[in-house]
Design a binder for these strands. Sequence first.
DNA 1: ACCAAGATGGTAGTAACTACCAGTGCGGTA
DNA 2: TACCGCACTGGTAGTTACTACCATCTTGGT
Lengths: 218, 218
Amino acid sequence: MPDQHSTLRAQRRAETQRAIQAHAVRLFTERGYDATTVTDVAEAAGVSPMTVYRHFPTKEDLVLIDQHGQLVAERIAATPATQSLVRRIGSALIDSATALTSGRHENNLTADGRFLLARLRLMISTPALRAKHLDNHYALQQAIVAAIEDDATDPETTFHAQAAASACLAVLHTALVRWAEDDGRAELPDLIAKALAAAFGDDIVDTRRDAGPPQPGG
Amino acid sequence: MPDQHSTLRAQRRAETQRAIQAHAVRLFTERGYDATTVTDVAEAAGVSPMTVYRHFPTKEDLVLIDQHGQLVAERIAATPATQSLVRRIGSALIDSATALTSGRHENNLTADGRFLLARLRLMISTPALRAKHLDNHYALQQAIVAAIEDDATDPETTFHAQAAASACLAVLHTALVRWAEDDGRAELPDLIAKALAAAFGDDIVDTRRDAGPPQPGG
DNA sequence: ACCAAGATGGTAGTAACTACCAGTGCGGTA
DNA sequence: TACCGCACTGGTAGTTACTACCATCTTGGT
């Protein structure tokens, strides 16, 4: 059990991991992703290349790894099943984005927010990162579908959930790109809501968090 | 101009390219993608590894390269601008799928159809291929947005188009996965239509090709 | 004090990919 | 018909991401 066995070990490990990723994102931003080798990152972080690979299986993971993904799936299961699929998923995405970008003062992002923005810019501009990031969204889609079904596994129902989840996550990606292009000045939840409305219709996104009439996709 | 300069040269080039891809897909299916090296593909096709890289920049392109993508974007511009975005894109996708899978007898796919199915299975099951395939969809999304705008470049309009296009292509991907899981027995256009209906509502897809009332996403 | 286990580092190897240069056959031209 | 340009192909050497396999050291519990 590497989870709880020792706090000191876990702390050290988490710290080196954080340091490696921070140096990696910094170097990738400064010199470019392809122009920076894993050895460069290792030297900057003061560890051996081996250690980098222990913490991050691939070079892409140096940018992509975070914990935000699984939070969304958990949030889905908590939404009322009376609403339509896109409404449930959409509101979960907006809530997650709200939690993620909270704690900002006026136009200034937090340190976490700036780090997220830097990673996002890399993900969008670097083909290899963009591809694997989209694939991560695909994995998240599977988790969302699993969270929705929970028990019943009718193939038709699964297909509906797949379609709704994939569409919602694609819309989320569009909003993330827009947010990054805007240098994080706009409110991410608002962008997601606007993108959802653009794709599914203005009536799909609720400004207040009370259940509205479910329409499509249910 | 390597396009029209010589028919014999172009024919030879196209033939070797086709042969390399055919051997690649066969070997990848038989032995697995990761277990097959580019050198293996080159030997099977009777050419040098260098030639393989000349025709296909990356190993992934051995599976991913085709010409279907750009056809969709062209089809979009031909749709009436009076309809909603998702309806325009959706019908273009369905039409493209119809053209792509036409010419089948009962339950038997054509040779092209079987080849497409084999490639699709690889794209779905192999992480590296899946990632780059999704990134290709992202590139196609940009082309679709460009085809929709055509002249006016209002940022807000672009954002709407991005959201709608990304959602539609994600739904398309879901339908393609389903089609591959079904071994190509189902009708691909029908699956796309069903997936679109699941995501955007039953009223978004027209069974007949006459303009209906535009609702969301316009 | 001692042992189990986790974290780190080193070495060697594979495979994708990239210049750089050389040979060969097709295509138009004198 | 002879000739030159050019596209296509092949070879060599090198870089880099990534993977075993093994040795070392530190940490946590007995």
